[in-house]
Design a protein around this nucleic acid. Structure first.
Lengths: 351, 351
DNA sequence: TTGTACGCGTTATCAC
DNA sequence: GTGATAACGCGTACAA
């Protein structure tokens, strides 16, 4: 769309010139000490007298010297970089996740090598992570070809999957309790006396989506309720609108819809009200998943499940950092508890 | 909130062991050639015979060798890394921007060193960028202390500001045409016959916010309209609700509100309808800025301004890459045109 | 406590 | 076209 736009360059001023970066030898010369003294000054917990440290620091600030982290990695065999691989940040769930992951890694002193990847480019991007010798990586629901991820691990670089796991159990993972979350919603709808319960699914392949559905339908079965109908909305609003229309056109229409994320649930709310003239939650209950900001705003007030994104990010970093520190090669799978948020798109008791 | 949550580690399996990374010397030995031959094989456009290239590649894949990008940077004086500094990715505007910036940089063969920063930590984060010898940096509206940014430039690392600029004109920038966008909305509201026009501002300090307001009020003045009222919502929904309440409590209430972003505009729409029983756009016009997805959904159908985020990102990368390639030290300022989207929260003519 | 000397993995330079 | 060799900037045994 924006391809045809022309940007207007207002004006240009010539100003700068390239300089070579300052090395520890430069600092050593100015301070009148050896290079090792400089190195030691910048290495926490090394033997330097207060006097030389002083001299070095003075020279260093005078030259505005900073150790070259890249060169350092050659001797330490640690880059201080952690790869964070995610799908599109236009998805608020992954944007939030990446945000917290990055913040935490920064706190821990790591640099973040960000990769935004689709399935097609995933392998070549992992190659890059390997080239830059990242100390470890966090793969947030990348539609990953497992081989590349294993490659990372083969070099002793810990890898943690977030919001996704592999059945082979060879890679550590952190995910939300999707089975539990789905079941909790089944409980809620059963208590609400709903009989014709529909499911608006996300993308089929993802483990989170599969588990959410399974937890939901299995629990429904315990109440003797079978899924009344099912459509896929690919986690998107526009597709969700179409899918919701299909579900609501059934006769009789469902009296409850569980949507695999909030964005689709909001779509369903809009369609139900505007096109089918249904009252929520009296005529139909609609439930989301993810607890996005907008879902809580007045037009929606969605009942939804909070996956506790921050806790997921924290667990992932904790796992990774532990492995980094101890070269612990255990494979762990962590489940992060959900929180059910009952708001105004579901009713407490039967009709 | 999530601090009290406990993650459940399901089980652990010991599996891996650390290995040392393969170096070019290993490949050379296996292939029976010199290290230089290996280097040349992996250097695009270097003189290698097809025969040796073949041998090297075979050995390389056998050992699954990848050149160490960090070591390479020592001799080439280029890290292949570009720093991308942004504020919280929970803000969809910056998430979208970071998404496109990263995609484009990846296409160009650069790695992205991501920094999520608040004002307080900004300087220390820039230090890190310098330590990792990034080839350049893109600062997306970081509340930056100019000194650090200049430091980057001093080493000949091009810096491009996005959605923000400095008055001193020493750093290149790409921004939306906020003055023009504000003016276009003033035109729209004047044509709609509005008289009591209010402004719901974002954060005062940012240049984008200042320009948006200035373009708006200056153009209004040409129609002989003075700002009827003004509140600040800090670009946030919750604060926007409070601010909108204040504006609408005036008597008489404003007959139009221009909000500095969509999130606040949606808040205003909600408050106007639910709490003040106003019809939109008959009783009051409400305009947003940024064209977020949600703003276009049925409950809102906001009239808004699209800043052409992708075009901004593209312009920034173009500028940066040109400077990287040519060591061109010009300072450029680029303006990206806006697109006005008239939807259903404004009327076309007077009442 | 300090300095010397070597190695980390790569590319650039130069003879061959 | 190829292979030695010298950087690149740093950390760290080792000797002083």
């Amino acid at each position: 769309m924006a391809g045809c736009l022309r940007t207007i360059v207002i004006f240009g001023v010539s100003a700068l010139n390239k300089k070579k970066a300052i090395a520890s030898s430069d600092v050593a010369r100015l301070a009148g000490v050896s290079r090792s003294a400089v190195s030691r000054t910048f290495t926490p917990g090394a033997y330097v007298s207060e006097a030389t440290r002083e001299k070095v620091m003075q020279a260093a600030t005078a030259l505005s010297y900073r150790p070259n982290a890249l060169a350092r990695s050659l001797t330490t065999l640690q880059s201080g970089l952690v790869g964070v691989v995610t799908t599109s940040l236009e998805n608020p769930f992954y944007a939030g996740l990446t945000n917290t992951l990055t913040r935490l890694l920064q706190e821990q002193g790591y640099g973040v090598f960000l990769v935004v990847s689709e399935a097609a480019t995933f392998d070549s991007q992992i190659e890059r992570l390997l080239s830059y010798r990242v100390d470890g990586a966090i793969l947030a629901a990348a539609p990953l070809s497992s081989t590349s991820a294993f490659e990372l691990q083969r070099y002793g670089r810990p890898v943690v999957l977030v919001n996704r796991y592999l059945n082979q159990d060879n890679i550590s993972s952190v995910s939300g309790d999707n089975v539990g979350g789905g079941a909790a919603i089944a409980d809620l709808l059963a208590k609400g006396g709903h009989k014709r319960v529909a499911y608006l699914a996300g993308e089929g392949g993802e483990s989170s989506n599969r588990d959410r559905r399974r937890g939901f339908t299995d629990r429904l079965a315990k109440y003797g309720i079978a899924l009344y109908a099912e459509e896929s909305g690919l986690f998107r609003h526009d597709i969700g609108v179409v899918a919701a229309r299909k579900l609501l056109s059934l006769s009789p229409p469902p009296d409850a819809i569980f949507c695999a994320n909030d964005v689709m649930a909001m779509a369903a709310v809009e369609v139900a009200r505007a096109e089918f003239n249904l009252r929520i939650p009296q005529d139909i209950a609609i439930v989301g998943y993810d607890n996005t900001d907008q879902g809580g705003w007045p037009p929606y007030r969605l009942t939804t499940v909070d996956q506790n994104l921050d806790a997921m990010a924290r667990a992932a970093i904790e796992l990774l950092v532990r492995k980094l520190a101890s070269s612990d090669t255990t494979v762990d799978h962590a489940l992060v508890p959900y929180t059910l948020l009952e708001r105004e798109t579901t009713r407490k008791t039967g009709p």
